[in-house]
Simulated assay, not measured.
Amino acid sequence: MPNSSVTIITVSYNSMAVLPAMLKSVPKGTPVVVVDNASSDAGALKALTDEYGAILHLNTNNVGFGPACNQGAAKAQTEFLLFLNPDAELQAGALEALIQAAKTYPDVSGFNPRILDQNGNQSFKRGSKIKPKERWKGALPTADAVVSVLAGSAIFCRRAVFEEIGGFDPAIFMYHEDDDLSLRLREHGPLMYCHDAKVVHLSGHGSPRLPAVAAFKAYYSARSRAYALGKYGHPRPKLATLVAAVFRAIGPDTLFIKRRRAKNIGYLKGALSAFKDGGRNPS
């Protein structure tokens, strides 16, 4: 059933292989905003969003994931926001369960649904590289539970709180923006895992799985890690990122697996770049 109290925001980058299934999973009448980061298939994307009645915001260049989420949120007028990856699909009753959780736990600032992979296995984010000492210990939760960090593939929150904290940090192009948002949301209330809300996430399929795309993502992953570690007081954020990048680059998969080689080299280039400017969003 439609829900006019939630706006779903998704960011696309050549995501036509997965976006139709995501939009199909959304209950009809639920507001959706698709923010596109300069994909090569804008015509097909426009036809798709028209078919599902979604708002489409076309960027002329790739502004990054977090900044694009902020653009989408700025178009929302509903009480709640759900930031949903284009390679994720809502399962029946997911929105209703998240809304009910927000009513049951009014002090909670942000929620994750139960995130499953395509085989039905639960994917659960136990901790953050920004705050490595704060980790979920023990078995996967089987009921609603307070968590230390939210996974970025499906973040549900109140629009008022999101706006109060200033949204996603625009200095983070992509990766670790969910950790940073989680930590800032947490200043306004606990974070929670909602067991009854289910989302299937085809992790890593939001964009084509090509070596060049892997290198692009890894480059910004390293830059974002250096910036985020520094933001949260790590004594040597750029050095820590560079050391991690070197170990990845000299691993055996760099020699034998083409896509992994591109990814590891991209990460090393990103770490070296962050050494010069700290890893902030180049825009």
Results as ranks from 00 to 15, higher is better:
L82P: 00
I115F: 07
V26D: 01
Y232I: 08
P208L: 07
G72Q: 00
D144A: 08
L272M: 15
I115A: 01
H205R: 10
T78R: 07
N70R: 11
T254G: 00
T7S: 08
D196V: 06
P2T: 12
V246D: 01
R223D: 02
G279L: 01
D178S: 10
P20I: 08
N14K: 07
I115M: 09
R280Y: 02
A92R: 06
V26I: 15
Q100S: 11
F275Y: 15
S221V: 09
S40Q: 15
Y267S: 00
A74Y: 04
R126M: 07
V246R: 04
D41E: 15
I130H: 06
T254Q: 00
R259Y: 07
V213S: 12
K269Y: 02
S39R: 10
V26G: 03
T254R: 02
Y267W: 05
I257V: 15
A215Q: 09
G204T: 03
G53E: 12
I99F: 04
F80D: 02
G278R: 02
G206R: 05
N62K: 13
L82Q: 04
L116Q: 13
K133E: 11
S123E: 13
L45Y: 15
L150M: 13
A38L: 11
K103S: 09
A244R: 14
Y219K: 10
N281F: 01
L45R: 07
D169K: 03
P106N: 03
P170I: 01
M1W: 01
N61F: 15
N14P: 08
S39N: 11
S207E: 03
C157W: 00
D178N: 12
I165D: 03
I130A: 06
K103G: 12
Q71T: 12
S182W: 02
I115H: 03
R158I: 05
P252L: 09
F124V: 14
L229V: 03
H201A: 08
K46P: 09
K238C: 07
A42S: 11
G120A: 13
Y232V: 04
V149D: 00
V147Q: 07
A94K: 08
H234Q: 08
T104N: 14
G266Y: 09
Y13T: 13
D117G: 04
Y232K: 06
I9W: 05
A102L: 12
Y13N: 04
T142G: 10
F256H: 06
I165Y: 06
Q122D: 14
V246T: 15
G206Q: 11
